[in-house]
Write a protein that binds this DNA or RNA. Structure first.
Lengths: 73, 73
DNA sequence: AAGATAATTGTGGTTTAGGTCAACCGATTA
DNA sequence: TAATCGGTTGACCTAAACCACAATTATCTT
């Protein structure tokens, strides 16, 4: 399992935005059309996600993909 | 081989920034510590790159990773 | 045209993301 | 206590990212 600081920080940002939208991991994952298990691993920085997966997530969250790389709103 | 529009556009942005810095693919690739072949495929949108690879590229280009997702400067 | 440099493409091997299912762990609620 | 809900983790498989090397194809420069 990976444990890169950058991935962890990105996971935190995703989680933060998800909470802001009042979504559960289950809801977000299904909006992205994958399993809650994957969502959990992404949010905890265990996975070096690909661009298209991030794109799905940003779409489901209603934010621009670049926001996933920038702290705060 | 993938041919996603989003990946193609991102590749174009990377290429544009590389040219702006007067770097060849060879130079950029070696700064990222991978092969020029990979650089070529990324710039032409053939690969669904991972976050950490994009991070290497943005570091080598001296830009913030979020800029790789935003048109123009 | 010849030569050099830059970029693309093919192939093959290794690693890992993505996907799925099941089991498990709080915390909350009935 | 038992049941539910959100989240985490383990195990497994498949597809694809990553990496490297070589060969080919532009694109220049003289």
């Amino acid at each position: 399992m990976r444990k890169d600081k950058f991935l962890i920080e990105m996971g935190k940002r995703i989680r933060k935005k998800r909470i802001e939208k009042n979504m559960s991991q289950i809801e977000l994952a299904s909006a992205c059309e994958f399993e809650k298990a994957s969502m959990s691993r992404i949010e905890s920085g265990q996975i070096n996600t690909t661009v298209l997966t991030l794109l799905k997530i940003s779409n489901a969250l209603g934010v621009h993909i670049s926001e996933l790389f920038i702290d705060q709103k």
